[in-house]
Design a protein around this nucleic acid. Structure first.
Length: 516
RNA sequence: GCCCUGUUCGUCUAGUUGGUUAGGACGCAAGAUUUUCAUUCUUGAAAUCAGGAGUUCAAAUCUCCUACAGGGUACCA
C-alpha cells in the first residue's frame, strides 16, 4: 500500500517569516494537495533563548493572508499533537535515552566554555575542532569516563548533553528528490548534540522524533539542511525507523538580487522590496520591516511569483492559479541552484493579477483611500459615489501594477491642477495659444449640457479641420489645462467623466495662469 | 581550512534518451497604435551554455580537473 503523503512546514518562532520560508511552505503545500495528503504546521521552539514574542501569530497570520491552509498543527489541532515542540519536551528525553542504551549516543560533560577554549586553541594552530571520532576519546564523556564516574556525575546533577555517536569508517548515503544520490563519509561528521543541558532537544533530535511520530512521508526543506541530512539518516537507522524514513528534498536558496549571498532581512530595506509576507515590527528594537501585504501585493501574485522562482512546468506558461499549481507542481522539476529575487518581475506578476480584479472591487478599495485623502480633494468627497469611481478605475486600471497606483493615475479627477508641468507647457502652449484657447472656451461653453463631451469632441474635430490645425496642438492644450500635464487616458473620456462645468473652469484657469 | 551543493542571455529559466538557427518571460532598445503619457502589439539586442581536458562522427547535455558562487562546519534552527 502506498504511504499517505504527509508533509510539514516547521518554522521556529524567532522573528518574521522569511519569504524563502514562505516558498518552502508553498512547495510543501502544493506537493501535499497534489497527492491528497496532509500539510502540517509544527512550531520548532526548542531554542528558548531565541524565542520572539508574536512570531508564532505572525506565521499563522501570514499563511492566512496567502490562502495556504494547514490540515493539522498549531492553531488547528490534530491527532498527532501537540504540534509545538516546547509542549513535547518530555518525549524527547526518552528517545535520547534509547540511543544511549543502544550505543548510538553518549553523555558529554564538557561545558560550552571548555569547548570554546579548545576551539580557539585549534584555531590558533590553524586547525578546525570537531567533536568527532578523532577527538571524542580525549574529551569528558561517557566514552572516556568509567561507568561509575559517569553515574556519579549524572547523580550529582552535573550539566551534560547527549551526543550522537557516529559510526566509524562508513559511508552514509541517501537520495535527494532534487539532487539525486548523495554520500558522505562518517569520519568527517561531528557528533552533534541531540539533547541540550537545558533539557531541550536540538533540532536534529526533535525533528526526527516528530517527523516519525507524525508520520511525515516527505521532508521538503531548505538547502541549508543538506549537510546535516546524513546525521538525520543515521538517526532514523539508530532508532530502527529506516523503513519509514521520509524522502528528502532540499530546496535551493533565495539569493540577493544584487551581489551574492542569501536573501536577508536587510536587503529588503536596502533595495526597496519586502522580504516578509506581512509587515513586522520588532518587539524589542521597534524596527519596522515592510511586508508584501502592506506594500500592496496581491496574495495570488506573491504565490505565483514564488512558485516560479525555482520551479516551472516545462511549458511557457507563467501565470498559474493555486489550483493549477497544485495540479502541475512536481518536485523533480525544481531547479538545483539558488535564484536571485527580481523586483521587476514581482511587479509584473502583480500587474497581471491586478487586471483580473473587477473594477468595482478596486473602486470600493479606492473609495476608502479617497476618504483618507479628503484634504487633497477639491470636491465634496461625500458626493463621490462608487459608480463614478468605477468608471475612473476602468479607465486607469491597466496603467496600474498596484491598487495604490490608482491615485497617481487618476488624481486629476479629484484635484484641479495647481501648477502646469513646465516642459509640457513649453512644448504645447505655443505662441497665440492663449487666444486660441479663449476662442475654444467660448465655443465649448455654448454647447448644450446634454451629452456635452460627445458634442464637444465633434466640435473640436471640426474646429481643428477648419483651422488647419493638427489634433495634438489643440487636445494637448486642453489636456494641459485639465490635467496639468500631458499624460493620462483619453481626453474625451476625461471630459465626459469630469463634465462641462469642471472642464471649462479648468480651461479658464489655465488661460489665466499659463504665461509664456 | 574541511565537507556538501551548484554554475545556460543583466534576472528567472527551457533544454532531461548527446544531433536545436540554444526557446520563453521580466527588464532594456526600436517601431506601430494613442492628440499625450502609460497600456497594448510587433521587432530587435542580449548566453563562444564558468574555464580547460577527455569520450564521441557529433557534447549545454557523459567523465575528469580547475575556477567561482552558495550552504554547512554551535548545548541555532
Amino acid at each position: 500500500m502506498e504511504r499517505k503523503v504527509r508533509v510539514r512546514f516547521a518554522p521556529s518562532p524567532t522573528g518574521p517569516l522569511h519569504i524563502g520560508g514562505v516558498r518552502t511552505a508553498l512547495y510543501n503545500y502544493l506537493f501535499a494537495k497534489q497527492n491528497n495528503g496532509d500539510f502540517l504546521l509544527r512550531i520548532e521552539d526548542t531554542d528558548r533563548t531565541r524565542f520572539v514574542e508574536g512570531a508564532e501569530e505572525y506565521i499563522i497570520e501570514s499563511f492566512k493572508w496567502l490562502g495556504i491552509k494547514f490540515d493539522e498543527g498549531v492553531g488547528i489541532g490534530g491527532e498527532y499533537g501537540p504540534y509545538k515542540q516546547s509542549e513535547r519536551k518530555d518525549l524527547y528525553k526518552d528517545y535520547a535515552m534509547k540511543l544511549i542504551e543502544n550505543g548510538n549516543a553518549y553523555y558529554a560533560f564538557d561545558t560550552a566554555e571548555e569547548l570554546d577554549k579548545i576551539r580557539k586553541e585549534f584555531e590558533q594552530n590553524k586547525k578546525n575542532f570537531q567533536y568527532d571520532c578523532n577527538t571524542r576519546q580525549s574529551l569528558r564523556n561517557s566514552l572516556t569516563l568509567s561507568k561509575q564516574e559517569t553515574e556519579d556525575l549524572l547523580k550529582n546533577g552535573s550539566h551534560y548533553v547527549i551526543r550522537f555517536l557516529f559510526p566509524k569508517d562508513t559511508t552514509i548515503e541517501f537520495d535527494d528528490m532534487i539532487r539525486g544520490h548523495i554520500s558522505m563519509e562518517s569520519n568527517l561528521l561531528d557528533d552533534k548534540v541531540l539533547y541540550k543541558s537545558d533539557g531541550m532537544p536540538t533540532y536534529h533530535l526533535a525533528n526526527i522524533v516528530d517527523d516519525h511520530l507524525m508520520k511525515i512521508s516527505h521532508v521538503i526543506r531548505g538547502e541549508e539542511w543538506l549537510p546535516s541530512c546524513p546525521l538525520h539518516v543515521c538517526l532514523y537507522k539508530a532508532f530502527g525507523w529506516q523503513d519509514s524514513m521520509p524522502q528528502f528534498a532540499h530546496l535551493p536558496l533565495l539569493l540577493k538580487p544584487d551581489g551574492k549571498g542569501k536573501l536577508s532581512k536587510r536587503d529588503g530595506d536596502r533595495l526597496g522590496f519586502p522580504v516578509f509576507p506581512l509587515q513586522w515590527t520588532d518587539p524589542k528594537t521597534k524596527e519596522v520591516s515592510s511586508g508584501y501585504r502592506e506594500s500592496g501585493y496581491l496574495p495570488e501574485a506573491v504565490i505565483n511569483m514564488l512558485a516560479l522562482l525555482g520551479w516551472n512546468d516545462g511549458t511557457e506558461q507563467e501565470i498559474f492559479t493555486l489550483d493549477e499549481l497544485i495540479e502541475k507542481f512536481s518536485i523533480e522539476r525544481i531547479s538545483k541552484h539558488g535564484a536571485k529575487f527580481d523586483l521587476e518581475k514581482a511587479k509584473w506578476f502583480n500587474h497581471q493579477y491586478l487586471q483580473h480584479i473587477p473594477s468595482k472591487d478596486l473602486a470600493t478599495l479606492f473609495l476608502e483611500e479617497l476618504k483618507q485623502r479628503d484634504s487633497e480633494i477639491d470636491f465634496d468627497s461625500s458626493k463621490i459615489d462608487l459608480q463614478s469611481i468605477t468608471a475612473i478605475v476602468d479607465l486607469v486600471k491597466e496603467r496600474c501594477s498596484f491598487e495604490k497606483d490608482l491615485w497617481e493615475q487618476s488624481y486629476f479627477f479629484f484635484t484641479r491642477p495647481k501648477t502646469y508641468e513646465e516642459k509640457a507647457v513649453k512644448k504645447r502652449w505655443k505662441e497665440g495659444m492663449t487666444e486660441r484657447m479663449s476662442d475654444i472656451f467660448s465655443k465649448l461653453n455654448a454647447i448644450e449640457d446634454n451629452s456635452w463631451a460627445e458634442k464637444a469632441e465633434e466640435f473640436l474635430m471640426d474646429y481643428i479641420q477648419k483651422n488647419e490645425l493638427n489634433m495634438g496642438q489643440v487636445m494637448n492644450c486642453i489636456r494641459l489645462a485639465v490635467v496639468g500635464d500631458t499624460k493620462g487616458p483619453n481626453m474625451v473620456d476625461i471630459m465626459r467623466l469630469l463634465g462641462k462645468n469642471e472642464i471649462l473652469k479648468r480651461i479658464k484657469t489655465a488661460i489665466n495662469n499659463i504665461h509664456l
